[in-house]
Nucleic acid binder design. Structure first.
Lengths: 214, 214
DNA sequence: ATCGCTTTTGACCACTTGGTCAAACCGGAG
DNA sequence: CTCCGGTTTGACCAAGTGGTCAAAAGCGAT
């Protein structure tokens, strides 16, 4: 059987040398750069290869196809994206837990804008790749955490509102600063928008959740 | 001089017949459909032509190039997009004016999701086409309206916060329901998300601006 | 019917792009 | 050195793409 290229760490294949793993990392990073800026169809293997510092056939030696690169990239993405929400602790203080989530999400927009844009791109296009997993993993997690938030509200610890839409709001407000970066900077004149954004979101969610101090 | 194809209503050309105008409309609508779903590079002239019910060379008879179609589409878009903000009346009641803007913007997400996605796509890609106009028209308008809002805040008619980020928030929260539609529906299970969204945004902005009734 | 105009189309082209392949390269073990 | 595995590449291909062009088809007015 002609195994075309190394799979992540497949069945009976050597688990891949350190160098292989590193090259694949490099490729993935280059792919992230290009895919997030140009979209799936806009990205070309040539550009990704160039960005990674190798030739197109060489890239195809490490990944069997453009699709494959994209899918591996996408694979890790959703997990990374949902981790902060997963970290929200039902036993913690409601206000701190939610605010910590907001802050963490805003940090991600600042520190990983490419990932955010890649994700946005995928969703805007109708989630052709990670569509199925949205209806399972994502849906489950959101409803689970929404239930937690609802309990907090029923216990009177934060002001009531629709907890699912609250989560949407957090996503929308934080990711906006990564995905619509150029627009934000066009208005704000190229200063770093994040300090102001943090301050604003602090205020917004404090009031939404029922501020006790202001 | 060999004029290639009819321009909008150019210099010494006939102002274009009703039929011509209509065909161009059809093409523009087809282009909106395809561009918003696939992005600029993902869209093909063949698909747009097919969607519009004509052949590729025939499409090229009405528009000189793919770029030209895209640009005309983009041209009208920003104006349409900013109109509701323009409509915010400095002499009106602060709370009603802002809430009306929010509602209008949410309606647009519901009724013109393709336009919203096209816009999102353009911005995410770094606004290669309408970049310049962001730094002029958009920036000016936003700061103008931000000033109005700031006055309202200083007059104590609504609770204070950063007015520019407030506008960003309105954009983010409303457009989210168009641009991330699949994600929203994946979580909400394909019911119409808009009634819930409206209710939620009503609550959110009421509290942010200083609710007097709840 | 025929002229003159706009509209429509089939055939075609140049270029890009994802992907293949056989040959060359390289670095360590014998 | 030589062999041998993994690695790298130049040349190539088929399909898809944006765009051209000359010829044909409509069609209203004479």
């Amino acid at each position: 059987m002609s195994e075309k290229a190394a799979q992540p760490e497949t069945v009976e294949n050597r688990p891949m040398t350190r160098i292989q793993r590193k090259k694949r990392e490099t490729i993935l990073d280059a792919a992230l750069e290009v895919f997030s800026a140009e979209g799936f169809r806009g990205a070309t293997l040539d550009r990704i290869a160039a960005e990674a510092g190798l030739s197109k056939p060489n890239l195809l030696y490490y990944y069997p196809s453009k699709e494959a690169v994209f899918q591996e990239l996408m694979g890790g993405l959703l997990a990374t994206w949902l981790d902060p929400l997963k970290a929200m602790d039902p036993k913690g203080d409601p206000r701190s837990e939610i605010m910590a989530y907001v802050r963490r999400k805003l940090e991600m927009s600042r520190d990983f804008p490419r990932e955010s844009r890649l994700f946005a791109n995928e969703i805007v296009r109708g989630a052709p790749t990670l569509g199925p997993v949205l209806e399972t993993d994502l849906k489950t997690l959101v409803h689970e955490k929404a239930a937690v938030i609802r309990d907090w509200m029923h216990a009177g610890r934060i002001a009531p509102c629709d907890p699912v839409h609250l989560i949407f709001s957090i996503w929308a407000l934080t990711q906006h600063y990564a995905d619509f970066d150029v627009q934000v900077r066009a208005v704000l004149g190229h200063d770093d928008p994040f300090p102001g954004a943090e301050q604003h979101l602090e205020t917004l969610f404090a009031r939404l959740l029922g501020d006790t101090t202001a």
